[in-house]
Amino acid sequence: MPSETPQAEVGPTGCPHRSGPHSAKGSLEKGSPEDKEAKEPLWIRPDAPSRCTWQLGRPASESPHHHTAPAKSPKILPDILKKIGDTPMVRINKIGKKFGLKCELLAKCEFFNAGGSVKDRISLRMIEDAERDGTLKPGDTIIEPTSGNTGIGLALAAAVRGYRCIIVMPEKMSSEKVDVLRALGAEIVRTPTNARFDSPESHVGVAWRLKNEIPNSHILDQYRNASNPLAHYDTTADEILQQCDGKLDMLVASVGTGGTITGIARKLKEKCPGCRIIGVDPEGSILAEPEELNQTEQTTYEVEGIGYDFIPTVLDRTVVDKWFKSNDEEAFTFARMLIAQEGLLCGGSAGSTVAVAVKAAQELQEGQRCVVILPDSVRNYMTKFLSDRWMLQKGFLKEEDLTEKKPWWWHLRVQELGLSAPLTVLPTITCGHTIEILREKGFDQAPVVDEAGVILGMVTLGNMLSSLLAGKVQPSDQVGKVIYKQFKQIRLTDTLGRLSHILEMDHFALVV
C-alpha cells in the first residue's frame, strides 16, 4: 500500500459497493488471473465517493441489488447463522422517566444476534452475496479491517462455511474481542490505534497488504460494500417497522461504517417519512454534520465500534436529520445504567446512543415513540467499562463513588512517597548505550525526554532486548525507535489509591 493515498477510480455505471474482489474501477472485475494482476490496485480507499443510485421515491424494481426479506425461524435451526436477525424490541421503562421523557422509549437489542452484535447481519450478508456472485469459493481466505464486531461476525460465518479468516484490528480494541476471535479460529493482526486510516500501518493498510500477498484472499470491505446497508434496509428496518406496527417518530443510532443508519433510515424514509433520524458520533470522530460539531482538541476516545477519521463510502449522511456528539463518560455511564436499571447487557456504544436519545427525544410528546439501536453486548468489555477499576483509572468514576473498604494508605498523596527525580535518556542515544546505562543503574525503564525536557515516551529494558533479539533494531539504532509513546501519567497530588489502580493494569506510571 502506498504512503500517498491515490484516488480510487470510478467506473461508468453500476453501484460502487459490489461485493467481491475490487477492480481499479471499484466494481467486480472478471477475466484471467493475468488481467486481474495487471488491473487490481494495491488498495482502494474506504472513503471513495459513493456511486449508489438510491433515491427517495425511486421504484424498488430499479435497484441493481439482490434483495432479501426477513424469514421466520424454524423450530430447529440448521446452523447458528440462522440465529442472525429477528432481534427483540424491548421497552426501556426507567431511564426515559428518569430523564423526563414523555414518549415511549424502545430498544432494538442487536446483541441477541448469534455473534453478539449488529455486525453479524452485514457479515453474513457480505459472505452470502460474495458466494452468490462467485467471488468467494471453498478454501478462500477472508481478510477484514475491523474494530472487532464485524470480525467476530465474519469469523463466526467463516467457521460454519469453512473459510480461512484473518482479522486486522487496532490495538485499542478489547482483549475479549481478541479472545472470541481466536476461539472462532480467526487469525488476528493488531495495528497502532493512532495510525491514520490511509497510513500503511493502519488496520485498513495492513489488511490490503495481506490481501496482495495471500492468494485467493478477499477483503469484503464493510466500508464500501453495498451488502452492509442492504442488510439493514432489507431486514433490520423491516423488523423495526413490523415490531412497531409502522408507528415510530424517531430513530437514534450510533454511527461507525454508517451501514446501520443508512440502511434503516432509507427504508424508514420510504415507509415512515415523518420519522426523524438521529445520528450519534463520538467526540474525536469526524462523521457528524455540520462540520463545526467535529471541532475539538480530542483525537482519541475509548468507546469502541463507532466514529472514524474518514467518511466511509457506505455512509449516506443525507438521510440523517440531526447529529449529536457523545463523550466517553456519558457513554459508559449510560451503558452501566442500562445494565443495572433495565437488565440490558449492552456495550458502550449503546450507552452513547441512549445518552443522546434522552436529549433528542425531549421534543417528542406522549403517545409518540423513539427507537434506539443497541449494537453489541457487554461480553466484549468485561475488563473495560464493566470494571470499576478501569473506570477509575480512566477518570470516568471517582473514588467516592465506590463504597468498598480501602487499605490505610489509600488516600495518601503520591508526594508522600518522597520520590527522587528519575533517570532520563535522550532519544538520540543508541539502544546499546541505553541498555548499558539501565543495567549500570539497576533500572528496568526510563523516560525519554528531548533537550527541552519534554517527555516523549518510555523505554524499557525488556522491550529493547526483545527488539534486538527479533532483529527489529540494532544496538547502533537510536533509542527513539523503541519508545512507548502511550503511558499513564500521575500527579504528586493524586492518591496512592489512584496509582494502585493504574499499576494493576500497566507496568509503570510516570509522575509529573
Rank of each mutant, 00 (worst) to 15 (best):
P74A: 13
R276K: 11
T150C: 01
G259H: 00
A107N: 01
D47P: 06
A195V: 15
T135F: 11
V168P: 02
D79G: 10
A71V: 15
A265L: 02
L56E: 12
P46Q: 01
F112D: 02
G31F: 13
G205F: 14
M126H: 06
G116R: 13
A207L: 00
C52G: 00
S23R: 10
T257F: 01
R45N: 09
L210V: 07
E213M: 15
A71E: 12
N212C: 13
E201L: 10
C103V: 04
C275Y: 02
P21G: 05
K30A: 10
E104Y: 08
M169I: 10
K98D: 10
E62R: 03
R164H: 14
L56T: 10
E131I: 07
L220M: 03
V204F: 10
I219F: 03
N225T: 04
D47R: 05
D47Y: 01
E144W: 00
E37W: 13
G205H: 07
I92N: 01
H203M: 07
P2R: 13
L184P: 01
G96F: 04
F112I: 06
N113A: 03
T146L: 05
G26C: 09
G274E: 11
W43P: 08
A114N: 05
I122L: 03
N212R: 14
K108E: 06
R45S: 09
M173C: 06
T141H: 09
K102A: 13
V178S: 05
V204P: 08
I122H: 01
V180D: 02
K267C: 14
N228F: 00
N93L: 14
I240T: 07
L101Q: 00
L106N: 08
P88F: 04
G11V: 10
T235C: 12
V255G: 05
Y223K: 01
K83S: 10
S19E: 06
T193G: 08
Y233Q: 02
A157C: 09
Q7T: 10
I214E: 04
D129Q: 12
K39D: 12
L77P: 03
C52R: 00
P64E: 09
T260K: 02
P273R: 08
L42N: 04
R182S: 07
G185L: 00
E187G: 07
Y233N: 05
L101H: 00
H218F: 12
L56Q: 10
I44N: 13
G274F: 14
D129T: 05
L105R: 05
D221A: 04
L105D: 00
V118D: 03
S23I: 12
I84D: 08
D47H: 06
P229E: 04
R161I: 07
M250Q: 01
K267L: 12
R276L: 12
G116Y: 13
S50Y: 02
S63T: 09
E187Q: 11
E110T: 01
T146V: 05
K102D: 05
S32F: 06
N149A: 05
K102H: 09
P59W: 09
L210G: 06
F99Q: 08
R91P: 09
D120Q: 07
A226H: 08
S202I: 02
V255E: 07
R266E: 08
L184A: 02
R182V: 05
A8C: 06
F112H: 00
S199H: 09
G11D: 10
N228M: 00
S199W: 02
D79H: 10
A60M: 10
K108D: 03
K108A: 01
L124Y: 10
E110F: 02
V180S: 08
E213L: 06
L268H: 03
T191S: 05
T191H: 03
L28E: 10
R132A: 10
R161W: 07
D129W: 06
T236Y: 00
P41I: 11
S217C: 04
A130G: 10
M126A: 07
K267A: 15
M126S: 02
W54Q: 06
V10R: 11
L28F: 06
A114R: 07
I143Q: 01
K137G: 07
K97F: 15
G31I: 04
G151N: 02
V252R: 09
T5F: 10
